[in-house]
Design a protein around this nucleic acid. Structure first.
Lengths: 357, 357
DNA sequence: CTGAAAGCGCTAACAC
DNA sequence: GTGTTAGCGCTTTCAG
């Protein structure tokens, strides 16, 4: 079952030294004073025999498994989960850790989350990464079982756990600013009816950006009935049919933007000549396949994954270095990662304001 | 670091029995004859103390870690990867295993794949699940390091490893058949220029289905320059502009279908009244957000994940039961999982054949 | 029916 | 500088 059945003992025998020495050399133990020649000899024989450490044994003894547990809600449905996983995996790998996953149904009861955590804990993970689908406020900061824990795209009510989130406020502001910069003076905001923290931040960012530009009056906001293309279509339709319609639309997500495209086409408005559109999420599958391609605010999921993994590893290694240093911060503010505006082809100056007859 | 520092020893002491007995009871060792009372006593004290086995120690001793290694190419970019992961994770969990992941850049050199496998192997996984992005033929069946290995959406040249794939031939045939059943007698097929096994199978399935329906002459095939919406747009445009254009389109993927929607709109063809469209892949994000929603052939990724995990666990447990039973099949055919046609709103009878003036 | 004891492969005190 | 030794928590012969 082993990658290779050659162990530290074999290397020791072959190199004519003790297992201790081998262990010291191979782990670069700082306190070990081993002669350069011995070091070399051990290293070469280890390579020659194709030695690979048994992480299980090492973990059992050192009480550190080198495994990070990743609980991820809804790995399947959201394309974002994949990016978080990728980011976390790469960061972990870069520091010598591996990821162990537990997927749980999204928005599930705390029980499922707890079960996921438990199962990871049983696997002796050194820490937990908990990735919620879409910026949830976790009601109960599930018992992390004593290991360091970092939240991705979620926070606990009491802010007791380190967390990383996207700066959705800033992202929305950047989107709005881009529209203002392009010369638009009437801008619509398509939001969704469901009031989650995420969409709320986006709305705030939008409003404040216009206010800062001295254009508080330029904003129109419409809530779509559903957070998808049909919802976006209906919302855009109504906003465009009103008097003095906006020349640009900032949409709370790319699916809404997709619906807005259809509403625009229906009214004979071409994008971006008659109407500029900015999406949110930068879901490549949508943004890159619309015509024209959709300019959208990208959420830093990959970065959130790497940040969280690194933060977790820091905590693990700190705890190992100074035992007794529990995570005991009072009210930790979530770290916000910037959203980047990805310019594609859906924003232009408000050139031809009226649709062609 | 432990989920709980209570071990088998504590349970034994508390219950007034030996560790052996505790181990036997808790693992339901068949050969162990333990009195029902003792059994009960052990069980209850275990629960009372909140005992949880240390999987590491167990693994070290029994040489079985209960961990499945999952190498996944391109976890981020394809929405399919998530479904495979989910399927594998659930199946594994249901049988008491957990997943350890290694993501590698898609279509990467064998080296990266090998590195991913190695890293998993170092984690003492009991077996490897290798998921390629899009039905690749792996040139070298990377050294699986002695553990059982199952391929997802990929095969090796020599067919030496068990593999599961989607029945893309059957899926395409089902799509074509649905169009024939709706009454279409001229059907276009939008394929892509890149000749991968997957698209080839889809083309074959399409052709054969029409042939079986006695309509071999009804097919027109166009290859899109790129496998995305712009490619689909151009291809559909050309096919619709030709003489005697098809009344229905089967597209090799949903992005092509998205492009076809635009081409249809441009010509004033409404879907599905003037033109029926069937996509491939059933990417929910696209299919459900198009207007009308796109009927598409769903690829059984979730099922492939569960099948592969189960197959792998079977192999692991078989090998454990009868040592020496290496995987030594000669030329194993990949298992094909059926594709399901998801009916949404883009197929209808060829009602009004010509576009309105 | 139950228990003692020998490790799995490795690390970490502590001797020399 | 290097080696001896005692476990990490568990499974598993082999004796009672």
């Amino acid at each position: 079952m082993d990658s290779s059945s050659v162990g530290i003992k074999d290397v020791a025998r072959e190199a004519g030294v003790s297992v201790t020495t081998v262990s010291h050399v191979l782990n670069n133990v700082p306190s070990a004073r081993v002669s350069p020649e011995t070091r070399e000899k051990v290293r070469t024989t280890a390579v020659r025999l194709g030695y690979g450490p048994n992480r299980l044994a090492r973990a059992l003894r050192s009480r550190r498994s080198g495994v990070l547990g990743l609980v991820v809600e809804d790995a399947a449905t959201t394309p974002h989960a994949g990016r978080i996983i990728l980011g976390a995996d790469q960061a972990a790998r870069a520091r010598g850790y591996t990821l162990m996953m537990a997927t749980i149904p999204g928005q599930s009861e705390p029980d499922a989350a707890q079960a996921g955590v438990e199962s990871l804990l049983a696997g002796q993970v050194d820490g937990i990464l908990y990735s919620a689908a879409g910026r949830r406020v976790l009601p109960i900061p599930f018992r992390p079982g004593g290991v360091p824990t970092v939240l991705v795209d979620a926070i606990t009510i009491d802010g007791s756990l380190p967390a990383v989130m996207a700066d959705e406020y800033g992202g929305a502001a950047a989107g709005a600013a881009a529209l203002v910069a392009a010369g638009h003076y009437r801008i619509g905001f398509l939001t969704t009816r469901d009031e989650n923290p995420s969409t709320h931040q986006r709305l705030l960012g939008f409003r404040d950006a216009l206010q800062r530009a001295g254009m508080a009056g330029a904003a129109t906001t419409v809530a779509a009935a559903s957070p998808d293309a049909p919802g976006g279509y209906a919302a855009a339709r109504s906003i465009l049919a009103g008097g003095n319609p906006p020349s640009a639309l900032l949409c709370c997500n790319d699916r809404l933007a997709m619906g807005a495209y259809r509403a625009a086409a229906e009214r004979g408005l071409s994008i971006p000549d008659h109407l500029s559109v900015v999406g949110f999420g930068d879901v490549d599958l949508l943004a890159a396949n619309l015509h024209p391609q959709l300019t959208s605010v990208a959420l830093p999921y990959y970065g959130m994954g790497t940040w969280a993994a690194n933060r977790l590893i820091d905590a693990i290694e700190l705890q190992a270095a100074e035992p007794g240093t529990r995570q005991h911060h009072d009210r930790l503010d979530p770290v916000l990662l910037a959203c980047r505006l990805v310019n594609r082809g859906s924003v232009a100056a408000p050139g031809t304001p009226a649709p062609q007859a």
